[in-house]
Design a protein around this nucleic acid. Sequence first.
RNA 1: GGAGAAGUGGCCGAGUUGGCUGAAGGCGCACGCCUGCUAAGCGUGUUAUGGGCGUAAAACUCAUACGAGGGUUCAAAUCCCUCCUUCUCCGCCA
Length: 426
Amino acid sequence: MLDLKLMQNAPEVVREALDKRNSKIDVQEFTDLDDKRKALIAEVESLKAEQNKVGPEIAKRKKAGQDASDLLKRMGEVSGRVKELDRELAEVEKAEKDWMMAVPNIPHASVPVGVSEEDNPVLRYWGEKPAFDFAPKEHWEIGTALGGLDFECAAKLAGARFSISFGWCARLERALAQFMLDTQTGERGYTEVIPPFIVNKATMTGTGQLPKFEEDLFKLTDERELYLIPTAEVPLTNIYAGEVIPEEKLPVKFCAQTPCFRSEAGSYGKDTKGLIRQHQFYKVEMVNFAHPDHSYEALEDMTRSAERILEKLNLPYRTITLCTGDMGFGAAKTYDIEVWLPGQDKYREISSCSNCEDFQARRANIKFQPKDSKKKLFVHTLNGSGLAVGRCLVAVIENYQQADGSIVIPEALRPYMGGLEVVKAE
RNA sequence: GGAGAAGUGGCCGAGUUGGCUGAAGGCGCACGCCUGCUAAGCGUGUUAUGGGCGUAAAACUCAUACGAGGGUUCAAAUCCCUCCUUCUCCGCCA
């Protein structure tokens, strides 16, 4: 959510930001609502002030045994009017809040302006693409041939966009997740967390999934209005919802491996084969709570934490800066890391690291107490994948495939695989 | 699942014949005074959000907030209803 004061004092700044994002949201709607709200507040508050003044007078008269019927009559009218106005005000406030909740974050000044992913500049490349003296296959072909993946079985159990892994493949995925967690906690200063995988509406609203993107979520059908998390960003960021973090604790860095559940509504026909786009996948997620003065350093640090995983696995990647038109709803700046997939002959997203500045902190009311002032301020929140486990499994299979259909296990993972060096056909 | 108890400010804790309690008292914290040092003591202050006014900021003023939402009433922390959370006992269970 944007700052109300900014909306009121500098609507043109917001309009400009929305233009850069190709958003059609009309800022004038807000201004009209806000004017109406202020007018209602002025009226209802003066009536309430009268109530507060006259109330004790009534009590005094009653105690003294005097007649107060004139005051009671007047206050009866005032009370009725106050109820009316309160109702009206609540409506306007809700409309205004709804409007605010649907507005995306303002891009940071350093974010390149652009319309689509075509306009995302590459920041850096790392690693050498593996050279094959044969035509590299896609992961699903290799994995299925080696008995590790079975998409027909998954479809029988759950439907399209699900997977099931067996044996070496299941273990490899577990190894990857564990390797990532060990790296982030052991070398990058993260505290490991196991959060709930099901959360309530308020939590989903705090990070921005609701109210706008409900169709992307899996919702439970009972009356409690619970949702399956689409990313651990949601529970991790909301750990401090409604809380004040002492300044000296910043930055707080959490990471967690969780399953992620996404409805993938609207992605029909995209990535229908293999593990790339699933309704359920594991991801190791990083979340930072940073001091506003240092959040962009934190973004660089977080991006490095994600990149380190690929470097240790010796997987080639490139890092790009998302342009204004391609950024997510809550982000002020985002780096995507794309890993090389020889089977697809393409770089594919494997991590997305964003600084949301105070956008989520304002929604979820996450503040810190600066040492040198009484005023509590909003923290900046960041989130990033470190990494998407399923896609990383894809990258390992495709980059480490051999001519005979076997897969070499990256050295960094061998301790997690009981020393296994190669996965071969039986 | 059954039976009870409770939810007030950073914390503890008053408040229960509805009105003068944003909220006594205590602790903590901040600033000042006092003091050979420490401890103790004295004084002052100590919430958030929104509106008005206005500003570099503040000050001032009004409104709202006693788990959440709704109701009764001229008026609710105080009465009624629903929900949430926590705790205790019984049952059940990985």
